[in-house]
Each structure stands twice: as structure tokens, then as C-alpha cells.
Design a protein around this nucleic acid. Structure first.
Lengths: 189, 189
DNA sequence: ATTATCTATAGATCTATAGATAATGC
DNA sequence: ATTATCTATAGATCTATAGATAATGC
């Protein structure tokens, strides 16, 4: 039974990986269960044995992300600005993942989208974590003159906004360099 | 015949407005011609008399945007930073339009999306215009230390990224205030 | 027994084409 | 004549349910 559970978990993980790919290519609304199933050598109905609805599969994809970018542990609280640079550099090597979540973020602002609540909660949390990182580094006022609470939404916006520009035209935007420029701006007096 | 053409043009404009709304609610892939048609009191086939394919309707929507945010005239070359603040304030009063184009931008990074080329071209142009605005204001080096070419993608990213945060949770992000914070950062020595 | 997969299929949609009919403008 | 709109419909999809069959694990 332990072996069976392990195999089942492995299958689910495979399906989630395939879903990540298909969502990157077509978005969530455009991603069909059939296309995901085909990628792991199952029929669409076979896939529904592991995830009973399309939305359940999306939830698994979003949970995967949560783990992925908190590094499995409890968030970004212990981070420092140069670790954020590393995160951006890491993203710049993984266009697939970046594309998946940029597509989902875009869709999530439409009505009744099943990822909307996830992203809303997530951004509130990310802003809070960013502010904490900046406060730990600089105190209540950054050298550039902003408070951590003013800088946090800007930093988040820069990361997301650069991703769109980079996905559309990778050679036109050096994402890590631009992010470093922004950090220099925050930290320069 | 002049009157007929005018009425036809009015009808097309009505359809484009309806399409803007439906795309805001469901994205382009999720927007059905039937839903757009219903909103203007036509059948889906009646709508196809004005736009022969779904993609033709999208093209009309994108052209509308081009006109909209260049103010009908030749672009942003003559702009100054405080006019950009006005643009952001204007956007903050029009969540519907912002949502339409944020949803389209998100979808456009997926494969074979019919708006992809539009956005790619548009962002290259916007970066160039932003750099020109900043150079006209500050010369070859901004007080914060960046060149106009370094600042332009950041400024663009901030505007887009703030829109997503604001659409998801309007009360959590004061978009114009945050944008002003960013401009202060660029302009502060 | 339980788990993994499949075939069959219902029930919704969606885009686009074909071709008819009504209304408008010279 | 041309323009506007409609009905009918082909042809693709898509999600999800029902129920059969095969494989695995106690």
C-alpha cells in the first residue's frame, strides 16, 4: 500500500507538470484536460481519476507554485534584497514557469476566475513580505526616501511587469539587470 | 450612402465597445461572439456581418486602444512625467478598460495568441517613448542615477504591475500614489 | 478490495458558412 | 443594388458521468 501510494503520488506530480506546460501554452481557459492527459499518456477520463475536475487540477498547480517560491519553507521573511536578485535570475532561466504564472495572473483578473482569490491573497502576502525584507535591511525609511510599505508594491510591480516585457521579447529586456537597477534606486541616497 | 456608412460605423463602434466589456469579463479566449452579439441585440451570425471572424473583432479592439492611449495623435513624444501621472489617475477611474487590456496582455504571452505581436510591438514603442520623455525632462542621466534607457522598462513595468495588484484588490493599492512614489525615486538625487 | 484506466456518451458550447428575407439608398 | 439581419446547420471541441475491465496489494 505504501508503494501504491507512492506511485499514485508520482502520477499526480507528472500530471501537474504537464498541466503547467499546457497552461503556459494556452492559459487555463484554453488548456483542455485532453491535452494534459495526452502529455502523460492517459485518456482525458483517465486523468479525471486523479483530479476529479479541471478546477481541482488548477488548485494543485497553484499549490505547487506556493511551495516552489517559498522554497518549501515558511515564506520570504528571512530574505534579503540580494536573494531577490537571485530569484529574478532564477526566473530568467525558466521561461516556462514564468509564462504559466504570468498567463494565470492575467486571466485571474477576469470574472469568476478560479485563481482570482489565490492571487489576491498571494499579492497581499507578497507585499507584506517585501516590506519586511526592506525594513530588515533599511529600517523605517529607505535611503531613496520611501517607506518599506511604499516600496513593497512597487517592487512587486517591477518584478511582474518586467516578466511580461521579457516574455514578449526576451532579447529586449535584461530582467535581472533591470531589477538590480531598481534596487539601486531604492537603496541610493 | 453617406448616412448608411455613418450608421454602419456606429454599429461597428457599438460592437467594439461590447467586445471590450466581454473581454474584460472573460478574456479573449473566453469571450464568445454570441455574448458580444447579445449585448448589442444581434445574433452571433448578425455580428459576423460586421466582423467576419473573431480575430477581426479583436484587431478592431486593439486598434481602438492604440487610438485611445495615444490620444488620437502621434504618440507620447510630447509628454512629460506629470502627464504620465494623469494617465495613471485616468486609468484608476476606468477599471473596465484596464481589466480588458490586463487580461489581453496576460493571454498574449501564450502561444499563437493573436494579440501577441501587437503587444510585442507596442511595448518596444512604449519603452522608446518613455525613454524619450525622461530624456527630455532630465537629459542623459536621471537624478536617481539611471539612464533613460534603464528607467524606461522599469517605468513600464511599474505601470502594468500596479494595475494587476489594483485590479485584484483596489482598496489595497493606491495606484496613482504608488506611481508618484516611483517618479519621485527616479527624480530624487 | 482497491486502484488505475478505458470505452461510450450526454449535454454544452463555439466559430463559421450558406442562403433566405427584409430594409435602405440611388 | 447594397446592406443588415435572420434561420439552419456543419463540424469541432470540451467537461463530466456511468460503468466495464484489468492490475495490484492484502
Amino acid at each position: 500500500m505504501a508503494a501504491a501510494r507512492a506511485r499514485s503520488e508520482e502520477r499526480r506530480a507528472e500530471i501537474v507538470r504537464a498541466a503547467l506546460e499546457v497552461i503556459a501554452e494556452r492559459g487555463y481557459r484554453g488548456a483542455s484536460l485532453g491535452a494534459v492527459a495526452e502529455r502523460v499518456g492517459l485518456t482525458q477520463q483517465g486523468l479525471l481519476h486523479y483530479f476529479p475536475t479541471k478546477e481541482a487540477l488548477l488548485v494543485a498547480v497553484l499549490e505547487e507554485r506556493d511551495q516552489w517560491d517559498t522554497g518549501g519553507s515558511g515564506g520570504r521573511e528571512g530574505w534579503r534584497p540580494d536573494l531577490l536578485v537571485s530569484l529574478v535570475e532564477y526566473n530568467a532561466m525558466r521561461p516556462g514557469i514564468v509564462q504559466t504564472f504570468s498567463a494565470l495572473l492575467g486571466e485571474s483578473v477576469t470574472e469568476d476566475h478560479p485563481a482570482r482569490e489565490f492571487f489576491t491573497r498571494r499579492y497581499a502576502q507578497v507585499r507584506a513580505e517585501m516590506a519586511a525584507v526592506l525594513r530588515a535591511e533599511y529600517g523605517d525609511r529607505l535611503p531613496g526616501g520611501l517607506t518599506p510599505e511604499q516600496a513593497a508594491p512597487l517592487m512587486t510591480a517591477v518584478m511582474d511587469g518586467l516578466q511580461y516585457q521579457w516574455l514578449l521579447e526576451p532579447d529586449a529586456v535584461d530582467m535581472p539587470a533591470a531589477f538590480r537597477d531598481f534596487l539601486r534606486l531604492l537603496g541610493a541616497r
